[in-house]
Amino acid sequence: MLSRVANCIYWMNRYIERAENVARFVDVNQSISLGGTPQWAPLVYASGDEELFSKHYGEFSTENVLRFLLFDEQNPNSILSCAKYARENARTIREILSVSLWESINRFYLRVRDGMAHSDAVLQNPHQFLERVKRSSHQVIGVTEATLSHGEAWHFARVGQLLERADKTSRILDVKYFILLPAASHVGSTLDVVQWSALLESTSALHAYRKTFGRIEPKSVAQFLILDRNFPRALRFCVVQAQASLHEITGTPIGEITSPVTERFAALRTQLRQTTINDIFNQGLHEFIDGFQDSVNGLGSEIFSAFFDTKPIETTDVASDQKISESSFSQTQTQS
């Protein structure tokens, strides 16, 4: 398939997944805040956009942070921006999407626009809107499964989705870390259990966790979200599945190292297989998450240069000194 098309479908899915995860972030924080002192600053810190936020808002009030994360067009990672970029990418490659996939992405965008039109009411009580964002994302994922051929395009879409999800699950864990840090004495308290449950709920993981571990303990929750092999939002699951799709694309056996990108995947997978939760806590959860996010960013860059990068081509015509602009390929991309 065309490099540009592969790039677009990869980013289309990353943006859909990103929008869903921003909705999850806000939702978990909303739950954690109720009945306690609302803390919204960690949310902005965890998404890495604090500089942009300070420039436009200043105070970390509930309303400011929600507006920034949900509807601010100047924030490239707001739900509105993500929906817009996802649709823009989809529109660029509409001819390779199934009709129903395009329609579900278009509807996603229209729903977010609709929320934007009633932003004051949504900011007062965002829950319903956030639910709708999550449901729309799930609809896109379901329609992708059911109507797009599971060929190269589908695998690129999947790699984008899984890498984004792994990155964001790690950030959700980080939010909890930021919030708890000043009150380490709460560990094991009732409040603590409520907060960890909210976190599991926000990743749709509560039931699956209960079945695996039963009681709620911080270490087990972290273990579940980082190291579980079967839960679809866990870091390890995402990395293993993304690696499988990548090897489908290259047509090589899983784990065989033929390029920088296959090498990075193999290394990250090995790390997640060999690391125990005690190792992670000894190292520091926050430090581990930082390292993991670096690895995911590294994978993203390697994927770009292996498949999407349109290097100028040596033409047979000697007189040709035209360099093809790469800007048109990256204009709808931003990375957090």
Binding site: R4, I93, E95, I96, T315
Partner: peptide, 10 residues
Amino acid sequence: LVFGPDLVVA
């Protein structure tokens, strides 16, 4: 569906 930069003479 291609855009100009997708095509090259070689």
